[in-house]
Design a protein around this nucleic acid. Sequence first.
DNA 1: CGCAATTATGGTATCATAATTGCGGTGCTATACT
Length: 485
Amino acid sequence: MKIKLYDHLNKQFGYDMFRIGQEEVITSVLEGKHTLAVLPTGTGKSLCYQLPGYLLKGIVIIVSPLLSLMQDQVEQLKINGEKRVTALNSFLESKERKQIIHSLQNYRFIYTSPEMLTNNEILQKLKQMEISLFVVDEAHCISQWGPDFRPDYLNLSMIRSELKNPTTLALTATATEDVRADIIKHLNLDNVNQLIYSVDRPNIALVVEETTNYNDKVNKLLQFVKQLQKPGIIYFSSKRLTEEMAALLRNNGIAQTAAYHGGMDREQRILIQQQFLHNQLQVICATSAFGMGVNKENIRFVIHFHMPYQLDSYLQEIGRAGRDGKKSIAVLLYSPGDEFLPLQIFENELPSDDQIEQFFLLNKNSNEESLLNLTEIQLRFLTYYQKKYERSEVAKRVKRIRDFRIQYKQKKLNEMVKWVKSTTCRREGILRYFQEQKVTNVKDCCDVCGVHIENYQTYIPENVKGQNENWQLLLKNLLIRGDEK
DNA sequence: CGCAATTATGGTATCATAATTGCGGTGCTATACT
């Protein structure tokens, strides 16, 4: 068996050796065990189902959160000479789609979304196929997005049982015990083989930098970006700020800078990501929309202008640095009150008591929904639970689910803030959160243990101080220009 | 929450200030219609 594995590794993928965890995951899957694998970023998770795909009889279904990820993976497999691969999603024209659905048995790998699988026509068709492996890529999305943002993620257990409980592999780079329990629950798996590897990335120094106010933060950001080795990513919680700050950086001599967020055209987003991957851009100012599936080895820094609402996301985002194993740095800029932005966002995203009550009083066939001024997310949240609980007291139950969800996010945010404000080793703090112990003694560990910042800087020939003085002027000009619009 | 933008107010000009409102993140799919 072992020899066969290495044979295939070499023949299909051209590698001589497995990376950490890969062999264990593949063996587990081939033995028909449901497997939950937490493998650190950059260890080649896709191989964990692609190789078994060649050894098993039947179709491999891969549930992926993003269309762009599916397209990338399909392309990658095609480059490797695999023709029996497709992405079943809304990119397909209806003709194409019909054709593919009609000939599903001809494929070995089918990438798709939870939303597509919820479509009854597609599910019925898949039921007739022999499915050798059901893969959920980026499985933390079940827990992170399922309960509100993308409820179809919660349908996966129903889908799995419709497909007669195929061997399932859930893959992610970060998952605490709670999140793992959530994944297992929503996939309805029993006897799960959990293969958990350390989430620690010793080559990434962890720095939290306190700032006194907004201007001070902008100032510090500018200093860091000027001095740190590039390429790098800066995360913001606002689309508007990604664009404003990208302009500010460009005006300050960091020419190869661009913004990236979910409000941009799809084409524009792809262009920017490609330019970054090919070193035509040095700095990306982004919202959390940027990152999943960005396989760039040499990212040297990740700065957070705003912190995310949970350490899970923080680790995902900083984990994009230093995949080549070389020294990299994560800097989180904090100013007092920063935690109120995420708090506000998730306290308002779900429907209010009034909205819930009124929604369930509506006549389902009328179009009165529009009168409630619901956002798309609120409407989907309500519709999902309307279908799920078709009986009395729905409103009460939905309110309880909403409250529970808000409380959960508040708890997550509190843990994040506690970490930011703590005065003990940052690495230890993160690892404790992931139920791990710090084992290695890391040089340049964190701001608490001490970091030699010069290890992460580029040599700057000009007088930096002189340049720093006119940023305020530039910012002022920028803001004035903004006012005139 | 905290800040910016918009609207309301007062008293009766064409404005200064107060009060209110809005904004702030992640993506799938389906369908109608220029």
